[in-house]
């Protein structure tokens, strides 16, 4: 079976989840979308060739367990506990966010042709999909007022970076990938605790209320 033929639809699906992340206004949907991204990414280290060494299989499993199961679980648990408003008010509306995302996608497509990509390293569409995911994450972090949505943005950016590194994971050492995953996991865990405290102290997870510290 030609694995490359499977890869392109996956990347297109990833790009679509990004656009959906940018236009949706319900936190619950955002969490499901980020879980879908995690599930797609778990397949990324399998390409471009179909042979599967043990360490790669381990990595794929770890990615699926953390990105597609653990993160969404942590996030939805936080969401349930804090009893927050399920609707999010962005600084930047859905239309403008989507336009920014599409702008990011076009820029990534253009950039791919400008950079001397080592032949055979990136599967088709991987480069623009990864870069668009990073852009989407950064847009979410910057333009959303809700602390939980900012964490989801951080995760999306991290997903994009992970996808970038996926073709290199065949040559890299698996412990390093795993410790990076562990770091991000602990990071999200700590952020979850912080959100819990923010909700208790400020009675909201709206970062607009952070206005004491400034010069």
């Amino acid at each position: 079976m030609n694995v490359a033929a499977l890869f392109e639809p996956l990347m297109i699906a990833l790009i679509l989840t990004n656009l959906a992340l940018l236009v949706t206004s319900r936190t619950g949907v955002l969490i499901r979308l980020i879980a879908a991204q995690g599930a797609i990414l778990a397949f990324a280290p399998l390409f471009p060739s179909s042979n599967l060494p043990v360490h790669l299989a381990l990595l794929c499993l770890a990615v699926f367990a953390i990105k597609a199961v653990a993160f969404p679980y942590l996030l939805s648990r936080t969401l349930r506990r804090i009893d927050a408003d399920p609707l999010i008010e962005p600084y930047l509306g859905a239309n403008l966010s989507a336009a920014a995302g599409i702008g990011g996608l076009l820029f990534s497509l253009w950039l791919e042709h400008r950079l001397p990509v080592p032949p055979g390293l990136f599967a088709p569409l991987l480069f623009p999909a990864a870069l668009t995911t990073i852009f989407t994450g950064l847009i979410l972090v910057v333009t959303r007022k809700n602390a939980l949505t900012q964490v989801i943005g951080y995760l999306a950016a991290e997903n994009g970076i992970f996808l970038f590194g996926a073709p290199l994971s065949r040559q890299g050492s698996v412990w390093l990938e795993l410790s990076i995953l562990l770091d991000v996991f602990v990071g999200v865990f700590v952020m979850g605790i912080a959100i819990h405290h923010i909700n208790k102290t400020f009675e909201s997870i709206d970062v607009d209320r952070f206005c004491t510290l400034r010069d």
């Binding site: 900012q150 951080y154 912080a194 102290t201 400020f202 952070f210 004491t212 510290l213």
Partner: peptide, 16 residues
């Protein structure tokens, strides 16, 4: 409140 605000900024800005 203030230290929480500082912690959140630190955590998010530095993580990104």
């Amino acid at each position: 409140r203030r230290s929480l605000e500082a912690t959140w900024k630190y955590l998010l800005i530095c993580s990104v």
